[in-house]
């Protein structure tokens, strides 16, 4: 098992787990889990557009996550 720190932004906070506070908190994953698995673990459907930023780098959906990774899950919002 590994634990990553997740921060959900704006409307994606509705996918927060009970362990999270204000859309932010730890999430336990299997050792072989990727960013795609993280989205599935949060219950974010594949049709929900979002961008993942892992340790301050934009990440694809198949990135193998490491213990302690910081993962931001962003909706497709870009100001005006």
């Amino acid at each position: 098992m590994k634990t990553v720190q997740v921060k959900l932004y704006l409307n994606l906070r509705k996918y927060a787990t009970p362990a999270m506070d204000n859309g932010q908190g730890p999430l336990s994953l299997q050792e072989n889990h990727t960013t795609n698995d993280l989205l599935a673990a949060l219950g974010i459907p594949s049709g929900e557009e979002c961008t993942l930023v892992v340790n301050n780098r934009i990440a694809g959906k198949d990135l193998l996550l490491k213990d302690g990774d910081q993962v931001a899950v962003l909706p497709p919002v870009s100001g005006g």
Partner: peptide, 13 residues
């Protein structure tokens, strides 16, 4: 539109 400020900050924008 200002609701996007934290998101674009995270994207380096």
């Amino acid at each position: 539109t200002a609701g996007g400020v934290p998101v674009v900050e995270k994207l380096g924008d």
